[in-house]
Amino acid sequence: MNSRDLILNKVRQNKPDLLPLPILEAYPQGDIDLTDKFGNFLKNVGGDIYLAKDVQEARAHLTQKFQLSESIKVADYTDTNLFQQDPHSFEDVFVTIMRGQWGVAENAAIWIPEEYLPGKQRVLPFICQHLVIYLPADALLPTMYEAYQKIGTQDFGGYGVFIAGPSKTADIEQSLVIGAHGPRSLTVYLIEKQQL
């Protein structure tokens, strides 16, 4: 017998009688300001948050913030040339700019489906030195329950990720260090006018 059948047979023999699968439910979060809560959690996990009336305003602000110039490599979600490139070629990307689909107020996690990744390049939010996410101001949800209700109804592609803050570690004496392997910073722009 191969290992697959061996394992499945042993599970069949040894498993207990069937127990019910519980129904998932929403837990009312009371009267909370989603923007406040999301913003506070984002700051707590080391991120920066700004309100922008549109993408142009956000872009102008981040150009200043990161002192972007011709010589600095930026991976932008509007750049259609990114699709065909070898992921290793992004090693020197300084800033990745991409859209987020949903933001979760209880933990500042932002959902990124594959099609939102610049050039569908999965490595781009990780390999860059700094990450920028544009999030529609009306895309905030109270908890992970509501987030998975939204995600459940769509095909998110071959890969999707919740991102909450910049990469970090506390593996040396529990001292928090921002910028482990991934980005050293995360900047989120809540975009008021929806034309993403």
């Binding site: 933990n107 500042a108 998110f156 592609g157 071959g158 890969y159 999707g160 919740f162 991102i163 909450a164």
Partner: peptide, 15 residues
């Protein structure tokens, strides 16, 4: 004691 890990990555299909 974090609200969530920085990354929760969902792998469905290979690139």
């Amino acid at each position: 004691g974090q609200p969530i890990t920085t990354y929760s990555s969902h792998f469905l299909r290979p690139a």
